[in-house]
Each structure stands twice: as C-alpha cells, then as structure tokens.
C-alpha cells in the first residue's frame, strides 16, 4: 500500500458549536483527504465562518459537541498554534493587522517553534512571493497594515506556501480582491494540492462560485442553518449559481439585504 504515507485525513464528526450561547453549528460531518478540494458553500449567516474559526480554535467559540480529527487525532483540545503545527492552516477572510510585526519575523518564530531552521524562511518567502506576483518588500512591512484586499489575500497565500500545511481552510479567499489576485492565489493553492508531500487538502469556504471557477472542487457541500444540507460534485456549485440558496431554507430578501452590507460582495454575483 504505497500511498499510505502520502495520504492524510481531516475528519469533522458531528461538530456542534455555539457563539455567546447561541447554537450556530448543529452537526457538521465531512472528510477531506490529501489532494482533495472541498468547497463549503452557503448563504450568509449559515455558519461558514464559524466552521473555519472553530476548526482553527479561535477564542470566543464554544464547541458543544463532536470532533475534528487529523489522522485520527482530535485537535479540538489543542491551542491554535499546536493545531497549526499539526498541519492546519486558516486563510482568514479578514486578515488581522499586526503593527510592527513582519510576515518574515512571524514565520521565523513559527519555524523555530516547530523545530525547523528559521534561516530557511527568507529564501522560501522570496520564492513564494515571486510565484504569486507579490512585491517582495511587502514581507518586511508590518503584517497586513495598509495592504489592499488583494495584497492581504496574496499575503495569506504566501504564508500557506511557506508553511506547507497538510490541510488549509480558506475562509472566503475570494472576497475583497480583484480577478488577477484571485487567479494568482487560486493557482498557488491548486498547485499545492498536486505537488505537496502529502499534497494539500483544501476546505474552501465561499458564498459565491467565483473562487471555484479558478480552483476546481472535487466535492461541493451546501451549508445552511448549521448543517451540511447537500453534498455533490462540481455541478452542485453551478446549480447554486442559478438557483441561489432558497431551496436550502435561506430567505432571499434577507440575503439580498446582507449582500448590500458586505463591502467585499462580488458585484457580478
């Protein structure tokens, strides 16, 4: 069984989570394997971002049931940095500004904590920056400070490339950036799903199918009202594009209202 060493598994089992006492996730089940791209699509307020935050361990979310396993080991008891060391990466929808801390100094500390040589970081960063068309001087600037939406997402993608996680959760990677940046980021992620050792497994959370025209999903899940309501192939994303989420209990009037409020909403959607 030659492929055993190359395949990892991210397993989400009966995941329930609450925020401020309000139940948001009411039983999520899915499995992502190395090299697979899973899309989680859903209307606003369905729990998509909550899912990404709970997987990574963001403070403020209470897990009220279920497990998140990497190769059979439950990571929910671990602090976020240990989850990262266990091979998990979260590309954030709104990357946080950290004044006075450069991406390079952060990645050095990450390498050091994981027992890797931090002196490898500058070279890796330069290579990744070149690969996604990112100005190299940005890596010495404070993290995400004064970066445009596209630069922030390229920065997230650059870090993914340097840290080489086993699984990446992409939370609305396609929001707030132009088509060139989206293409550059999506292509880099797609390459990681083919070339890594093991190849990257992806959980791409998105409202729109925009990302999925650049990053081909193997499996599409529809998340609504805190649960996976349907699972299918890429054709499901195309169907959603035409019909919207009304079939899954979303109220179109509300969704339209939310859309106007979202400054990163896709104007072509």
């Amino acid at each position: 069984m030659w492929w055993w060493a190359d395949v990892s598994e991210l397993q989400i089992v009966g995941l329930h989570a609450a925020v401020h006492g309000r139940q948001i996730l009411t039983g999520i089940d899915l499995v992502v394997r190395s090299g697979e791209v899973h899309a989680v699509m859903g209307p606003n307020g369905s729990g998509k971002s909550t899912l990404s935050h709970v997987i990574m361990g963001k403070p403020g979310y209470e897990v009220t049931g279920g497990q998140v396993l990497i190769d059979g080991v439950d990571i929910l008891g671990l602090p976020a940095w240990k989850r990262a060391q266990a091979g998990l990466f979260l590309a954030m929808q709104y990357p946080i500004e950290v004044p006075g801390v450069s991406v390079e100094s952060m990645l050095r500390e990450s390498f050091l904590a994981a027992g890797n040589d931090p002196d490898l970081v500058p070279e890796l960063v330069a290579a990744e920056a070149a690969r996604i068309g990112f100005a190299e001087d940005v890596v010495h600037r404070p993290l995400n400070v004064d970066l445009s939406g596209g630069e922030k997402k390229r920065n997230e993608t650059l870090q993914l490339g340097v840290l080489r996680p086993t699984f990446a959760v992409l939370d609305e990677l396609d929001s707030g950036l132009d088509i060139d940046a989206l293409r550059a980021c999506a292509r880099r992620v797609e390459a990681a799903t083919k070339e890594g050792d093991p190849p990257l497994g992806v959980l791409a959370i998105t409202h729109y199918s925009r990302l999925l025209s650049e990053l081909q999903p193997d499996v599409v899940h529809v998340l609504a009202r805190g649960k996976i309501q349907a699972t299918g192939g890429p054709e499901l994303a195309i169907e959603l594009e035409a019909t919207g989420y009304t079939a899954y209990g979303d109220e179109p009037a509300d969704a339209a209202g939310d859309r106007e409020l979202d400054p990163f909403a896709d104007p072509f959607a």
Binding site: M56, G57, K58, P59, G60, P79, A80, W81, R83, A84, Q85, F89, L90, M92, P95, I96, E97, V98, V101, M106, L107, E109, S110, A113, A114, L143, Q159, L163
Partner: peptide, 14 residues
C-alpha cells in the same frame, strides 16, 4: 486577542 490568534494560527506559540 485577534492579533494573538492570527499569529497563533500560523504556528507561533502564545
């Protein structure tokens, strides 16, 4: 807290 979480999510200890 958000800044700390951002760095932690990249594998930097608390």
């Amino acid at each position: 807290e958000e800044q700390r979480f951002y760095l932690e999510s990249r594998g930097v200890p608390t």
